[in-house]
Computed example of a mutant assay.
Amino acid sequence: MKKFRGIFLKNEQEIRILREANRMVCTILDALGQAVRPGMETMALEDIAVAMCKEFDVQPAFKGYHGFPYALCCSVNEEVVHGFPSSRVLKEGDIVSLDMGVIHEGFYGDSARTFPVGAISASATRLLQVTEESLMRGIDMVHPGNQLYDVSAAIHEHVRQAGFDVVRRFVGHGIGCRLHEKPEIPNFVPKGMPGVPLKVGMVLAIEPMVTMGSSEVEILDDNWTAVTKDRSLAAHFEHSVAVTEDGPCILSVR
């Protein structure tokens, strides 16, 4: 494994393992999305995620990570990220963001999606659509020779044009044999920060977190769950993406 500016560049074999790890995450998120419905406790989603990890014979990436107590990050409505599965019952019109990771052969898979719970409002539907679109706009910029902040700018511009905002406290990251590697991938362009050219072999977990209101967040008393300060709805989508000579290769798809 080579390094560039402290960033690990993966070879073909390492990317193959990362692809398999992320395929498993994709399969788990597919199952979770099919299970989401009004009237269910969010802990039931945790149970599905844990059972599928056992089926795949992989370790959940988040459970125990810096003390996080669950396999699944489950964040409802104004919860942005790092929410706990619990006895909370999902209601018609809610949205629920599910962030899942696994460890396979020493490498991490990581992906997230936000799902509607039954029929949701037009504004919530638009929030989910714009957030996922912004992720894809960012991924479109993942080409060797482009700058990392080209990804950030594409995400932020699409979100801004839709009248929403991006959370600044949490950012995307490199991923490989550690869950969080260099570089950090903000969903906005930081002022005064030097750019990083994208190189073949980089693997990036790109994850816009978008709010309908203020971009400011606060942490609840559980010391993990991040919520919008104004309690506006938030959505979160994430893919793990390899930089190849031909451009982006999304690993967290079937």
Score class of each variant (00 low, 15 high):
His236Val: 02
Thr114Tyr: 05
His104Met: 02
Ile185Trp: 06
Val96Pro: 01
Leu29Gln: 04
Ser240Ala: 15
Ser75Met: 11
Met1Arg: 10
Ser87Gly: 09
Thr211Gln: 07
Gly145Trp: 05
Gly163Ser: 12
Gly145Gln: 11
Leu32Met: 12
Leu32Ala: 05
Phe188Gly: 03
Gly247Ala: 05
Asp246Gln: 11
Asn223Ile: 04
Pro248Gly: 05
Glu41Ala: 15
Val102His: 06
Leu198Ala: 04
Lys191Gln: 13
His156Gly: 04
Ile250Asn: 02
Ser123Asp: 14
Ser252Arg: 04
Ile17Lys: 15
Ser215Asp: 00
Lys199Asp: 07
Ala49Met: 15
His158Ala: 05
Ala205Cys: 10
Arg231His: 09
Ala235Glu: 07
Asn22Pro: 01
Val76Lys: 08
Phe188Asp: 08
Ile17Ala: 06
Leu135Glu: 05
Asn11Phe: 08
Gly33Pro: 04
Tyr65Ser: 11
Arg88Gly: 00
Leu128Arg: 15
Gly109Glu: 00
Lys54Tyr: 01
Glu78His: 11
Ala153Gly: 05
Arg137Met: 12
Ser214Leu: 14
Leu233Pro: 08
Leu32Asn: 13
Phe62Glu: 15
Pro69Leu: 09
Thr225Val: 12
Ser232Asp: 02
Val241Ser: 06
Gln161Glu: 09
Thr225Lys: 15
Asn146Lys: 09
Val166Gln: 08
Pro248Arg: 14
Ile15Leu: 13
Ala31Ile: 03
Ala71Pro: 00
Val151Trp: 00
Glu132Trp: 02
Met52Asp: 08
Leu128Phe: 15
Phe4Asp: 09
Ser240Pro: 05
Leu18Glu: 00
Asn223Glu: 14
Arg37Met: 03
Phe62Ala: 06
Gly67Ile: 06
Glu46Gln: 15
Val96Ser: 00
His173Glu: 04
Leu179Thr: 14
Val81Phe: 13
Val96Gln: 02
Val117Ser: 00
Val89His: 02
Lys2Asp: 13
Ile219Phe: 02
Glu14Pro: 15
Lys54Trp: 04
Gly172Ile: 03
Leu29His: 04
Asp165Leu: 04
Leu128Lys: 13
Gly192Asn: 13
Phe237Thr: 00
Cys73Glu: 06
Val25Pro: 06
Arg231Thr: 04
Ala119Cys: 11
Met24Arg: 07
Gly106Tyr: 03
Leu90Ile: 02
Val200Gln: 14
Val36Gln: 07
Gln13His: 14
Val130Gly: 03
Lys91Gln: 14
Asn187Lys: 07
Leu45His: 03
Arg169Ala: 09
His143Ala: 02
Val200Trp: 12
Ile250Ser: 00
His173Ile: 08
His236Phe: 07
Val217His: 09
Gly213Trp: 07
Thr114Asp: 06
Asp140Met: 08
Pro190Val: 12
Gln34Thr: 12
Glu12Ser: 09
Ala234Val: 03
Val50Gly: 10
Thr131Ser: 10
Gly39Tyr: 08
Pro248Glu: 07
Gly172Leu: 05
Val217Phe: 12
Val50Glu: 15
Ala21Arg: 06
Arg113Trp: 13
Gln59Tyr: 13
Glu92Cys: 01
Ile17Gln: 11
Val76Gly: 01
Gly33Ile: 05
Ile95Ala: 09
Thr27Ala: 15
Phe62Gly: 10
His173Phe: 03
Gln13Ser: 12
Met136Arg: 11
